[in-house]
Every structure is written in structure tokens, then in C-alpha cells.
Design a protein around this nucleic acid. Structure first.
Lengths: 194, 194
DNA sequence: TTATAAAGCAAACAGTCGTTTGTTTTATTT
DNA sequence: AAATAAAACAAACGACTGTTTGCTTTATAA
């Protein structure tokens, strides 16, 4: 008999649901993505999604959590490979951008879907975002900068530019997440070398 | 018989419709704002909006156009008050941020609502955005930078950071659009002074 | 083999969506 | 005062929204 290969049932199709939800939330935004869209993408009936998630917002929160987890993990790993503060920051910037522009969907949802777009889940989303922001704050705090430097502005400048790149980035021969992150950091770092 | 230029009634409540649409699109996003929301805000019936606009997308495009017009105007005026390239750029950055964070609704819609969120109008929205981006490209081109400097990255870094500020900015005593724009530019400019 | 619980189906719920249509009000022009 | 055109009303259209309910299938454990 053709016993269809069956993995244990426990995590059945939940990962697939999250994948497609992430893809659709990223592509069309939260409000413009319907539960029916997601159901169709995983070849299910709309109501069946509610076995896995109590509400649409909870599905978004789950994607958000995975997004933050993925990107944090990548950045932490990159940081740990260096000792010098500027190198740590550069590695973090590269990892951040690669997670955003290559890993794709999950991470992009985090910076594309605004907490205010989902009032009922806004608090949870903000909390997840903040936990990540702290990572970069620590890196910037460790930089050997002139005493009059505004470190908060420094962080906001860098992270803002990195996040905004989603709007214009197109992969190409000389354009990679890595090269962009490095270009940005070079523009910010040069003053320190003198 | 005087060709009476009929200002009288012609654009009666159209400005009000645009104002409220801009406010709602900024607050809740495009997809989450319904024509009924807008109609209620201007104390009209939903169907009446269709006397002024053939479709919801056209209403967005109108807001977009006004947003680009407002911010371009402000930035151009600021630029014209200076001669030195760095001062021109700083004035432009300040004006850009003030238009975004103080003028409010219209300009914010332009950087908050993504063209891809409105497929039918995407081409028109991109065109409007690009017309503005060119303004900054010219300013950066005029800067006296070391020959090896990547001017495209410079522009993307600055403009990205400025646009992203919508996500964290809160008006306060020591925090103003002007002070932020200046902080950013100082971080980018310092290397040139040495 | 039978019991059990996970997972999904089928169908509908009440409400909202963008939009259209025919009619009425309102202000201006003749 | 009558004619005209702008502007808004009133009511509905079909499609789509998130979600609920009861029932059936399916894989695992006893």
C-alpha cells in the first residue's frame, strides 16, 4: 500500500501557515490580507485556521515573534564573531540587512507592519520591537566616539537607513545587503579614523 | 457678458474631504480606511464622495499629489535661502523633516502608504515619489566630497533615516524636527571638516 | 481493534466593503 | 421668476470580511 510519508502529527501544518501568512502580510500588508487569502495559500478552508489561531491578530503576532527571533539570532551570532566595537557594529548591520532583504518575509513583516495598524495587538508588537532595538543601543554605546557625539542620533540614523532600504533595494551584481551595510557604516565611521 | 470665473462654489467641500482622507490614511493606513470612514468624517453619505472622486484610489492619489507638492515646495524654498552646498542640504533636511513631522498628514501619507498597497495606482504614486527624490540627488551631487565617496549611498542613508523618523519621533523640549535633522547631518558631515 | 484527540471540512453568521443608481436639494445664471 | 447645473441624499447592489458552529476525517495510543 502506498503509505504516504507522514511526519509526526504534532506540528502538522502550522509552519506552512506561518510561512504563507508572513509572505502575504509582507506583500500586501496586514489589513489587505484576508484570512481567506491565507487559507487558500495553504489549501485549507478559512475556518480551519481558527484551530491554530484564535484570531487574525494572533496570527500576526506569531509571525512577528518569529521575525524578531530570526533577526535577533542572526545579529547576535554575527556580533559574537568579533571583538572590536566597530567591527561588531558592522557585522550587526550586515546581519540585520541580510535578515531583512534575504531571509525575507518574517523579518520584513516586523518592520513593515506597524503596531498601530493592529490596535488590539499593538502593545505586544511594540514590546517585541523594543527587545530588538536594545541590541543595537548596546553596540553603539560601546563605540569609541568623541565625547560630544550624540549616540542616540547615531543609532537612529543607522537603523533608520537600514530599515528604509526595504523600499528601494533591488538585488544586483554590485548591490548586496552586505555592500550596502558597509557603505553606510563607512560614511559614519570615516570621521573617527582621522 | 463676462466670462465669470466660477470660484464661487466649484470646490466647495473638496478640501475638507482631502484633509480628512489624509488624516485617516495616515492614522490607519490605506486599506484599513473605508470610504464610509471618510464620509463620516466630513459628515456626508458614502456615495456622495463619488461625485468628487471616481474611486478610492483616486482619492489617495489626490492626497499623494498634495503631499508631494507641499513637501517639495517647503524644501525648495529652504534650499533657495542658501548658497553653500552643505548649508543647502542641511536646510533641505530640516525642511523635509518639518514637513513630515509638523505639517503632518499629507506629507506623511506619501512616505507611509506604499505604492504596492494600491496596485491600481502604484505607477502614479511611484512617479510622484521619484519626482521628489531627484531634488535630493541634486543636492548631494553638489557636495564637496572626497572623490571616493559613494554619493548614492550618502543620499539613501540620509533620506532613509529622515523618513524612518516617523516611527520614533515624539515632540519634546529638546527634540524637534530641526534638531534631529541637524544631528544627522553633523554625523555625516564631520568627516569633511578635518 | 477500539478509543481518543488532533486537524480539517462544510456551511453559515452578521457585518462591512467599494460602488452605482435615481432622486432631491441647493446655489447660481438667465 | 424660471432654467440650469452642482452637490448631496437615500437606498441598495453583490462581493467580501473575520469568525463560529457542528460534523467528519485521520492518525496515534490503548
Amino acid at each position: 500500500m502506498a503509505q504516504t510519508l507522514r511526519v509526526s502529527r504534532s506540528d502538522s501544518r502550522l509552519p506552512q501557515i506561518l510561512d504563507e501568512a508572513a509572505r502575504l502580510f509582507r506583500e500586501k500588508g496586514y489589513a489587505a490580507t484576508s484570512m481567506r487569502d491565507i487559507a487558500a495559500a495553504v489549501d485549507m478552508l478559512p475556518g480551519s485556521l481558527y484551530y491554530h489561531f484564535a484570531a487574525k491578530e494572533d496570527l500576526l503576532v506569531a509571525v512577528y515573534e518569529e521575525g524578531v527571533r530570526l533577526i535577533s539570532e542572526k545579529v547576535r551570532a554575527a556580533i559574537s564573531r568579533h571583538e572590536e566595537p566597530w567591527q561588531k557594529l558592522e557585522a550587526a548591520a550586515v546581519a540585520h540587512l541580510e535578515a531583512l532583504l534575504k531571509t525575507g518575509d518574517y523579518a520584513l513583516v516586523v518592520i513593515r507592519v506597524l503596531p498601530q495598524d493592529v490596535p488590539k495587538a499593538a502593545a505586544r508588537l511594540v514590546k517585541l520591537r523594543d527587545s530588538y532595538d536594545r541590541l543595537f543601543a548596546e553596540l553603539v554605546a560601546a563605540l569609541p566616539l568623541p565625547p560630544e557625539t550624540d549616540r542616540q542620533s547615531f543609532r537612529l540614523l543607522l537603523l533608520g537607513a537600514l530599515n528604509w532600504s526595504q523600499h528601494w533595494f533591488r538585488e544586483s551584481g554590485r548591490n548586496s545587503p552586505r555592500s550596502i551595510a558597509r557603505s553606510f557604516l563607512r560614511l559614519l565611521r570615516e570621521e573617527q579614523k582621522t
